[in-house]
Amino acid sequence: MGVILEVKNLTKKFGGLTAVNDFSFEIKRGEFIGLIGPNGAGKTTVFNLISGFEKPSSGRIRFNGIDITGMKPYKIVNLGIARTFQLVRSFKYLSLLDNITVSCLSKRGKEVSKKTGTDNYASSILASVGLIDKARIPPIILPHGDLRKLQIGKAVGTNPELLLLDEPFSGLSFEEQLGITDLIKKLHADGVTIFITGHVLRELMTLVPRVIAMHQGKFIADGPPVQVANNKIVLEAYLGRGVKIA
């Protein structure tokens, strides 16, 4: 159970605004861990920094011992970190199967594709996210819940060790949330390390054994959900009292 991801003193400034402020944490291989905080806390920015879509102002990120700070996104994916986006995005004129196929053609995706064949690999992923009967249609006409599943499928196609899921439940009905929950649990059982954000506490509480809480870019708490939820600062952050930390 080595450390898979190590984030140290991560800081990101947008002009005068510090979206992520001296943020540090570690994730162990095989963990299932949540990142919580109210809207605007900086969760998405943390994901953007880890996945290379933003460059940090300072701080280091290590993955499997390799320094990936400031690397290009596709290189990070090829090392084994995949992500989904809070706002769904898809290749809107490609079929669902081809949407997944693209990830299967990435460097790590190919390692599997080579053995099973790209089409088989993509189909199996599409089946596992429950969209195989829609393989030939483009994503434009999908309902939101299916688009969320597609996001996860696209990330899984890159054959990741660590999966970053940015608010995978947002905008979903309760039933749809259950479907996604099952899917994520299955992935975790398959050995993928899962790091997941949410701005509503309730969603993550029952799902993950460990959460990190952040507020206004800063680290607040780390531990089992019940413990973190009772943390005074976390409560105040969610109740919007505008606490001052330090």
């Binding site: 290749f91 490609l94 693209v102 053609l105 790590r108």
Partner: peptide, 17 residues
Amino acid sequence: TILKSIRDDEVGSDASG
């Protein structure tokens, strides 16, 4: 397919490795 994915969503294509 890869070329078309870049056309449809370059960021997404990047995120797909």
